[in-house]
């Protein structure tokens, strides 16, 4: 228990360090003293301080927000479905949110708040579509849950295809969302963050409150019910929190896949299965992962700037293969 607490403290310290690096490194390197000045005694005439407050800080806050939300959501989904491949990206949630935001903007000219609610509706619809398709495909006779993941992949492809078709249908208006649809952490989306951040706060608060019953549900629905968990209520509330949290993250910067899938696997060997530690650990590690990925995407390929979502998708594809090998293929360490 002690070393698990130490992991949380280390992750918190690392998050602060990564945040400072994120604010400091870039086309111009900004010293710590200037960063502190930007916060404590902002000088409007100082170019570096303007870069910190109006470019790098919003971008870092977006990375922090989406990293924490996607990673926590992935951890909850993996526990609820008892499926190591479950995440907002693999269960149609991110794609549903993205398709509805694109649809809302292209067809109905939605403003920022309306986009947040469209993302929420899309997240719910994407997940329900994946679940329904998996049930048709025989989910109840598939204890390893592959039908759910395959259905999620299919629904995601369909929804992202639909979103892309809508984007291509109107060249004059697609510029705003063309980069967003592939997951783009960018300071220009700061308004989106400020309009939906409270949804993420509510989502995380609810998930933390449900941490203990969620841990029990990783033992199975019957075992959890036997111990006194109202399984249906906890499932509905936590799924609602996941939809709200991941939907709002997608509404800000588009679908980002790697974090929700992989961070829970990275964190578990250090903090175990207890979601009271696992959820904060996932939130911190997810935030660190997104801040680091954002720095790499921004700086590693200069003069080009890569979309963070594209970089994370590349890493996520590799991680997906490793998880499949570990949990599903014969000879894998945890294959049963």
């Amino acid at each position: 228990m002690r070393h698990r607490g130490a992991f949380l403290i280390s992750a918190a310290v690392l998050l602060v360090v990564t945040l400072f690096l994120n604010l400091s490194l870039g086309a111009i390197v900004i010293p710590t003293s200037t960063i502190l000045s930007a916060f404590l005694s902002f000088d409007r005439q100082d170019y570096a301080q303007n870069v910190v407050l109006y470019q790098r800080l919003p971008r870092a806050l977006i990375a922090l927000y989406v990293g924490a939300l996607f990673a926590s959501s992935g951890s909850v989904l993996q526990g609820l479905t008892r499926n190591p491949l479950a995440s907002p990206a693999t269960l149609g949630i991110s794609a549903g949110a993205a398709a509805f935001v694109v649809g809302g903007v292209m067809l109905f000219d939605f403003g920022l708040e309306a986009q947040g609610f469209a993302a929420l509706a899309g997240a719910i619809l994407g997940f329900l579509a994946s679940l329904t398709m998996a049930r048709f495909a025989g989910l109840s006779r598939d204890p390893r849950g592959l039908s759910l993941i395959l259905s999620g992949a299919l629904v995601s492809m369909l929804l992202i295809g639909l979103a892309n078709a809508l984007l291509l249908s109107d060249p004059s208006r697609r510029a705003d969302l063309l980069s967003w649809i592939s997951g783009n952490i960018n300071h220009v989306y700061a308004d989106r963050l400020f309009s939906v951040w409270w949804l993420g706060a509510v989502s995380l608060g609810l998930l933390f409150a449900l941490a203990r019953p969620l841990t029990l549900m990783s033992l199975g629905r019957e075992q959890a019910a036997s111990a006194g968990v109202n399984v249906d209520l906890v499932t509905r509330l936590s799924l609602a929190a996941v939809m709200v949290g991941s939907g709002s993250a997608v509404a800000i910067c588009g679908p980002i896949g790697f974090v929700g899938l992989v961070v829970p696997h990275l964190v578990r060997p250090f903090v175990g299965q207890d979601q009271r530690l696992g959820l904060p650990a996932c939130a911190l590690t997810g935030a660190i992962a997104c801040l680091l990925a954002d720095m790499v995407a921004r700086e590693a390929f200069q003069p080009f700037v890569l979309n963070t979502g594209v970089l994370l998708d590349l890493l996520g594809g590799l991680a997906f293969l490793l998880i499949v090998k570990r949990f599903y293929l014969a000879g894998g360490e945890a294959a049963r």
Binding site: G79, S218, L219, G220, Q223, S226, P269, G272, Q273
Partner: peptide, 10 residues
């Protein structure tokens, strides 16, 4: 239950 299962690391 018949097949009590426990997740890894618990």
């Amino acid at each position: 239950p018949q097949e009590s299962q426990c997740p890894d690391y618990m």
